[in-house]
Write a protein that binds this DNA or RNA. Sequence first.
DNA 1: GTGAAAGCGCTAACAG
DNA 2: CTGTTAGCGCTTTCAC
Lengths: 374, 374
Amino acid sequence: MKPVTIKDVAQEAGVSTTLVSRVLNAEMDEQGRPVCAVNKATAARIMEVVNRLGYRPNTAAASLRKKRGNRIGVILPDLSHHFFALMARQFEMMARQNGYTVLFGSSGDMPDRIDNLAATFLQDNADGIILIPGIGCREVVESIVRRRIPLTLVVRDIPGLEQVGRVLTDNAAGTKLALDHLIGQGFQKIEMISSTLRISNNEERERLYEAYMAEAGRESRILHCDHTRPQESMTFILEDAMRRGVDAFYCPNSSLPLFCARACAGANISIPDDLAVMGYDGGDIFDITTPTITQISYSMKEVAEEAFRVLTARIQDFSMKPMRVVVPPSLKVGGSTQKAASVQGTSDSSDKPVRQLREAVRMLQDLEPFLQNK
Amino acid sequence: MKPVTIKDVAQEAGVSTTLVSRVLNAEMDEQGRPVCAVNKATAARIMEVVNRLGYRPNTAAASLRKKRGNRIGVILPDLSHHFFALMARQFEMMARQNGYTVLFGSSGDMPDRIDNLAATFLQDNADGIILIPGIGCREVVESIVRRRIPLTLVVRDIPGLEQVGRVLTDNAAGTKLALDHLIGQGFQKIEMISSTLRISNNEERERLYEAYMAEAGRESRILHCDHTRPQESMTFILEDAMRRGVDAFYCPNSSLPLFCARACAGANISIPDDLAVMGYDGGDIFDITTPTITQISYSMKEVAEEAFRVLTARIQDFSMKPMRVVVPPSLKVGGSTQKAASVQGTSDSSDKPVRQLREAVRMLQDLEPFLQNK
DNA sequence: GTGAAAGCGCTAACAG
DNA sequence: CTGTTAGCGCTTTCAC
């Protein structure tokens, strides 16, 4: 009925609680046996009792005693957003592999929520914090740093801060991949739709787009979709753009292409025949639209791995200068930037059912991640 | 540098730690003042010190002492799946409102992972567990129940179990809504595509579909998409169905319609003109496809609220018989079940840009939840 | 190689 | 109304 404690184990094994604790906390060698200064035989006996009794150490007691809880707090804008949900999942896996527990919190990009969550996590004995910062949270981040809490920023940056780890993405390389691709596909008038939300990535990707275009000797133009009323905003942007003969839109995030596609559908603009659309950081979500959306992305697994590495390094040795890691992007070509003729063969394959089937199968493979039921 | 403890507060306020603890744990009345047997003046003084020193009680210590941690563990199949991500977010909000903390874990629908997660959460002083069960986990669930842990099943059921709370959805009402709609739209040959995954919802919805069709004096037919190779499976299902003149597919979950749409795109089958598609539990995800997918859904907020209510009731009084709540479904009509002419007015609106714009704006409003940047 | 004892920060009796 | 005391279950000196 009541949980078995370390005392029970000690008694049953005829040793002191000290020894049990030692064995349980010992590093394990490759044979899975404790590698500490304990008699092999007693150690084995203790382990046997532990298993037999199904003993599970009480986390609260342990974390009260040592001053750390083997937890890390993850603060992200919104746990329900597909991008962060995927990230959360990766963190969860990393944590489990490394014997950590993750505490999640959605900040809604609000500085005071971040502050609050951080406080809660620390109260909960979190050893460190991973944060996806938003706009205007420099102050709160500084206050966390001042408390000497290991902190790692992920995916978005706050420039100039010392004493924080960073795992960022290579926006320069990403921009180049994106625009090389669009130009390679023969698009002439490539404009950018960014957001009025002043996230670091948006800003940086805007700058890089302009720099690239300038160097390529092309005209550049950035439209800003009002993030408070994206629907209307996007519709008007499209209207105007079509009139000006834009043939490709490059968007620096994963929401804008979806809005764009929706607006196109409503306005009888065909993607990619009338207009190509390219996104960023879309993950699987860009594979469920028709056509699929070409994007720059990076491995979320890699991001999570690095974030974990950077954070735990800092947890283990706070005096160490925190690392800064940059994750490489890759281009994932979808249907939204390839003229139909060259890919789907609308007229070409309509009389070749087998080919058609093959095609379908290939497209469906992209969807694999969505396989799960419900 | 080092955290301020209750002792510091007591000393500074010139009282005993007991009193501080009492004040802090007291119920607050509407004025936000403690309503316990403590001198108003001292209470106020204590609160002042608490705030001035920025005291935060140590969760580990508190939860070691009382035998509960004000946490609940939430075990769901996959935190990264849009459906569960949304659910997780709702739980997070509910928890915060009620002064709880949530621990999340993805089970991958594997019984031993569920077991493991439950054990971890209990170790962590979780007061109760919310579980979305999968196939073959009846045994592990029974073992949790046996340990007398408050447990609430959400969205999926394991029939016959005593002593577990339940928050389920009204599949009968949902099925009726779905099929009434399809029939109302004039579709003649309505078949069902289900999954080979034997989740309770799939099974129940299959039965209900057949019962409905029988009663309506219509032919029924259930195709099973192989969940291990959905792409191929779906393609073959479609091929065959088109040959047989099926004009509407009803799917009992949120993955199948996406596969279906994808396969249709690959096979030059137009939705909804050649084939209507209807899904279940799609949430926002059905709004980003073109056309949007008609679905039966329910308020995730409501589900989370109820789950919380059911669980906390049980936590507060374990002797009470756990509740069983059924959440009502609703029909959300998208473009996938409405013939183009009646909605988008392909030819009708092509020469009326204003109307077209309106249309687009309306469609985009559905996308609002995706507003967030990145 | 092993154990006794102290105590992490907090709360719950029990007295006053 | 308030304080004293005794632990919750675990880890960690320190001594043997």
